[in-house]
């Protein structure tokens, strides 16, 4: 078991306030629900058919004193789509951020437990975060394009990893490969269902795009790095139905070569695109994890059934 201790005593004060909030929230939900249901371990001990890509064991995350994830264990199978659903604030984004260690950026966060990528512990000493994040890509909850051209946004990752050279020196020495860059940009944008809309203005600033376009650009940017695992935090939250449908197709498509983990607030979306679904409920617990069909048609947990049928959350 390894851990990162980024917690900072000073931030304990911030976190105290958060805890107070959260305790209230939980109490409120227990009083609303008639019976308090115990989460049974077998509900989450789902064994997927494929080989395990990411294995998460006893994951605990604290923000200061706030316990945001409680002992989550789940294995994510390779080349499939795993959906994470649950009410707001239940720790879905937190969970996602543990997989590529973006939580390291949050001062107050401390992570305990193991996360293994292809059997290698992600939280052990000496892990090269750059290597990890190349292999585990992420699309954020709100679009965050760089204030650069669309083309530069897409080719940013490959450039930084030295896969594509565009610098002055590279051009002077003939190592630059503009066609390869152009092909990569086109392919990535096409997969993200954005190519049609922007192919005539690749050199415009990406901040000029609409919110939905920006989100798809961020997806394209992530695909250009060609990661093994793609983490998507509500990729379709800012999209209209047509673009959403495109993204959903894309996700299904991606599952052929990639391991996709997608957070969504839309039950329909989870049901449509995912192979297995994990349900988090308030308090940072993983309540049930199973085949998507099982979760939506015949969940073990009463709370999950209420949640997916829209009774609470």
């Amino acid at each position: 078991m390894s851990q990162t201790e980024n917690a900072d005593a000073e931030d304990a004060t911030d976190a105290t306030a958060v805890t107070a909030n959260r305790t209230d929230g939980r109490r409120a939900s227990t009083t609303a629900g008639e019976t308090v249901e115990e989460t049974r371990p077998e509900w989450t001990s789902y064994e997927a058919s494929g080989e395990t890509k990411v294995a998460v064991e006893d994951l605990d995350v604290h923000y200061g004193d706030d316990h945001a994830l409680k002992g989550v264990s789940m294995d994510i199978p390779e080349e499939s789509v795993t959906a994470l659903i649950g009410p707001s604030g239940c720790g879905k984004s937190t969970y996602l951020r543990c997989l590529n260690r973006m939580n390291d950026r949050i001062r107050a966060a401390s992570v305990d437990g193991t996360v293994e990528l292809d059997g290698e512990d992600v939280y052990q000493d000496g892990v090269d975060l750059v290597e990890l994040r190349k292999r585990v890509g992420m699309v954020f909850q709100s679009p965050n394009p760089f204030p650069k051209s669309i083309r530069e946004n897409v080719s940013y990752g490959p450039r930084k990893h030295g896969d594509i050279e565009t610098g002055l020196l590279a051009r002077l020495t003939g190592r630059a490969e503009p066609e390869r860059e152009a092909r990569l940009v086109e392919r990535s944008l096409e997969r993200a269902a954005l190519w049609e809309e922007v192919n005539d203005r690749l050199d415009d600033n990406a901040l000029g795009l609409s919110g939905g376009q920006q989100q798809r650009l961020c997806i394209a940017r992530c695909l250009a790095v060609d990661p093994e695992v793609i983490l998507m935090d509500e990729p379709a939250s800012a999209l209209d139905p047509i673009a959403t449908a495109k993204i959903e197709d894309l996700i299904e498509d991606l599952a052929q070569d990639y391991t996709v983990v997608v957070v969504t607030h839309s039950m329909q979306q989870a049901a449509r695109v995912s192979d297995q679904t994990a349900v988090f409920l308030t308090g940072g617990e993983l309540v049930e994890y199973d085949d998507t069909e099982k979760i939506f048609e015949n969940p073990e947990s009463q709370r999950v059934e209420d949640y997916v049928s829209g009774k609470f959350g």
Binding site: M102, R105, G137, K160
Partner: peptide, 27 residues
């Protein structure tokens, strides 16, 4: 410079220094 921009760069596997020179400093 918004933190989400820097996070975007880091999540793509850029190093801190690369994120500084290519995202934060230009912005």
């Amino acid at each position: 410079v918004p933190d989400v921009m820097k996070n975007g760069s880091l999540a793509l596997g850029a190093t801190d220094w690369q994120s500084m020179t290519s995202i934060t400093l230009p912005a």
